[in-house]
Design a protein around this nucleic acid. Structure first.
Length: 151
DNA sequence: TAGGCCATCTGGTCCT
DNA sequence: AGGACCAGATGGCCTA
């Protein structure tokens, strides 16, 4: 429980329509209605908490599949969404280019011209520190400052 | 200490 | 009627 905000449950209960009496109100007045309202509010709070926890779980799963090179700090939710967008667009571009360039060698030449000839296959093998990071940065175009431009 | 990020509560709205 | 979703408000934690 993080929030220490004064609970407005009381005020909401105060705003509950007051019973004016009559047969249908017998046994319904005062405390029972307030208890019902309080119970509903608590249940709604719990549902909302679960919903937000589900959302956070989804963000965590997204963080795991999104590139995070050079970032030892956890991406914020906003950054995670921006990175996911950037990542998806990069992958889409790769697929489109792969279709356009008929042979694998053409495609590799397009993307890896800055690599030594004998290191092409490192891309699909163990990651090369440094060079492959540049490759990824070039490919995904992720720059934290871009976040300020995204709306 | 200010600013960023986050969790939680809450009331409103929409949907089933 | 009750649940899901949303946005605003609030307060805690962390970092520069």
């Amino acid at each position: 429980m993080k929030s220490c905000k004064p609970n407005s449950l009381d005020s909401s209960l105060e705003s509950e329509p007051q019973c004016k009496g009559g047969i249908e109100c017998v046994g319904k007045c005062g405390s029972e209605r307030m208890e019902n309202a309080a119970r509903r509010r608590l249940a709604a709070n719990a549902r909302e908490r679960r919903r937000m926890q589900g959302l956070n779980t989804a963000f965590d799963r997204l963080r795991k599949v999104v590139p995070q090179w050079g970032q030892d700090k956890k991406l914020s939710k906003y950054e995670t969404l921006q990175m996911a967008l950037s990542y998806i667009m990069a992958l889409t571009r790769i697929l489109a280019e792969a279709e356009r360039y008929s042979t694998e060698r053409d495609w590799i030449n397009l993307h890896c011209e800055h690599f030594p000839q004998d290191s092409y296959h490192a891309l699909v093998g163990p990651k090369l520190p440094g060079e492959s990071e540049h490759y990824a940065q070039r490919l995904f175009g992720y720059q934290p400052e871009h976040f300020q431009m995204a709306t």
